[in-house]
């Protein structure tokens, strides 16, 4: 699928990932970006609701007009500690 005269699907993914990594409001390097059914999907995990919200804002800013955005990011939840691994 083409997203304009110069923006192929793979470049669109690259552009969104670049924005998520480099935008000073976010600096998220591990969000998975996928294009399907004419929409951009944000997949994976972030540390807070605020970062989840910010990721959608940053991504939307670099999308061409008419391309939808689906924010499937979830917020990480951690338990206190693991069992002990005995190494010696």
């Amino acid at each position: 699928m083409e997203y304009g005269p110069t923006l192929h699907k793979s470049y669109l993914v690259a552009r969104v990932r670049e924005a998520l990594a480099e935008d000073p409001r976010l600096n998220e390097l591990d969000i998975q970006v996928t294009v399907a059914a004419g929409k951009v999907f944000l997949l994976g995990e972030v540390a807070s609701q605020e970062r989840r919200r910010q990721a959608a804002i940053v991504a939307a800013e670099v999308l061409p007009e008419g391309i939808g955005l689906v924010n499937n990011l979830h917020v990480a939840r951690y338990t206190e500690s693991s069992d002990v691994e005995e190494l010696r």
Partner: peptide, 18 residues
């Protein structure tokens, strides 16, 4: 051991020696 929190899913991983 990769102790990145997104991998260990906990606040810290525990190891013991002797």
């Amino acid at each position: 051991r990769n102790v990145a929190m997104p991998v260990i899913r906990t606040g810290y991983q525990l190891f013991s020696f002797g």
